[in-house]
Computed example of a mutant assay.
Amino acid sequence: MPLNDLQKRLADDANSDFSGLRALFLNTTLKPSDRAASHTEDLMRDSIALMERCGVAVDYLRAADFNIAFGIAPDMREEGAPADDWPEKIWPKVNQADILVIGTPIWLGEESSICRVIIERLYAHSGQRNAKNQYIYYGKVGGTIITGNEDGIKHVAKTVLYSLQHIGYTIPPQADCGWIGEAGPGPSYGDETGEGNRAGYDSAFTRRNLTFMTFNLMHMARMLRDAGGLPDHGNQTTDWA
């Protein structure tokens, strides 16, 4: 769903300076890049395009392209896993990002299994501290993008966004967006239809929600960065040592 004229104008006329912010889009599709295209990535790319047009530095990763061990330790090799790409290839980009957007397809009404692994690995770092002795994710912003051909966007968003806020991410208003087709077999987001169109590209609802989500994430990240993060009164871990 390439950016339309309104989205381009909103990006070009933004009265906030989003330069200096960094975002990570982490796609938890079950398909590695060399196996198939990702419908979730297709929708995520629209939000990425908006952020980049606004001057945000963006990284994109497809989790299935990496060997990410399951577990709740920062480095699962120390827990016996034979391999783990998380510490060197994923975590540094998570740690650097002001904005984290998790993308997931819907399977049986739930987020993907890889999405659960990513949430658990994020949780593994939740006891670490930032420079203000707050939990490590304080001052960072989170959102989610969801695709599928069954109902479940709000349910999956609830799960993902709750998990992110629980470990310390700030969740702005309407920090989720998604697209679903008709229930049952049929085209997924971005698939060509019998009429020669691409499924979902004509959804004004999805385009609007994606735009709101993207700007809300950038606005909140800018506010937090300019304020030096969240105030540290009453939430320093050292008070409870």
Score class of each variant (00 low, 15 high):
residue 121 R to I: 08
residue 42 D to Q: 08
residue 92 P to W: 06
residue 18 F to I: 07
residue 194 G to I: 04
residue 141 V to W: 00
residue 145 I to M: 12
residue 240 W to N: 15
residue 184 G to R: 07
residue 148 G to R: 02
residue 113 S to W: 03
residue 223 M to Q: 13
residue 144 T to S: 14
residue 159 T to V: 09
residue 162 Y to K: 11
residue 138 Y to S: 08
residue 191 D to K: 06
residue 233 H to P: 02
residue 111 E to W: 01
residue 178 G to M: 04
residue 151 D to S: 10
residue 139 G to I: 09
residue 138 Y to R: 15
residue 8 K to G: 13
residue 57 A to I: 04
residue 80 G to L: 02
residue 195 E to L: 13
residue 71 G to L: 10
residue 15 N to C: 04
residue 93 K to N: 13
residue 68 I to G: 14
residue 41 E to F: 04
residue 16 S to F: 02
residue 216 N to C: 10
residue 145 I to T: 11
residue 90 I to F: 05
residue 62 R to V: 13
residue 131 A to K: 14
residue 39 H to G: 01
residue 225 R to S: 09
residue 232 D to I: 02
residue 76 M to P: 01
residue 210 L to A: 14
residue 171 I to C: 04
residue 129 R to C: 15
residue 113 S to P: 00
residue 72 I to K: 07
residue 220 M to A: 08
residue 24 L to Q: 05
residue 73 A to E: 07
residue 150 E to L: 07
residue 231 P to S: 11
residue 66 F to D: 14
residue 66 F to T: 11
residue 59 D to S: 09
residue 149 N to Y: 07
residue 72 I to V: 11
residue 174 Q to V: 04
residue 169 Y to N: 03
residue 23 A to M: 06
residue 56 V to Y: 02
residue 2 P to D: 03
residue 2 P to V: 05
residue 233 H to T: 15
residue 99 I to A: 13
residue 197 N to E: 14
residue 75 D to S: 08
residue 19 S to T: 11
residue 217 L to T: 00
residue 4 N to C: 10
residue 161 L to K: 00
residue 44 M to G: 05
residue 29 T to H: 01
residue 125 H to E: 13
residue 226 D to H: 05
residue 182 E to C: 02
residue 133 N to M: 14
residue 97 A to N: 15
residue 70 F to D: 14
residue 69 A to M: 10
residue 236 Q to K: 14
residue 169 Y to Q: 03
residue 191 D to T: 14
residue 119 I to H: 00
residue 158 K to R: 05
residue 237 T to C: 05
residue 76 M to D: 03
residue 95 N to Y: 10
residue 41 E to H: 13
residue 96 Q to S: 12
residue 153 I to C: 08
residue 84 D to L: 15
residue 230 L to A: 13
residue 47 S to I: 03
residue 42 D to H: 09
residue 43 L to S: 09
residue 54 C to S: 10
residue 13 D to A: 10
residue 82 P to V: 05
residue 90 I to W: 08
residue 180 I to K: 09
residue 200 G to W: 12
residue 209 N to I: 03
residue 137 Y to C: 05
residue 97 A to Y: 08
residue 78 E to Q: 10
residue 3 L to M: 14
residue 51 M to S: 08
residue 170 T to S: 15
residue 200 G to Q: 09
residue 121 R to Y: 06
residue 235 N to Q: 11
residue 117 V to D: 09
residue 222 R to K: 13
residue 34 D to A: 15
residue 235 N to F: 05
residue 187 P to N: 01
residue 145 I to S: 15
residue 95 N to I: 01
residue 203 S to V: 03
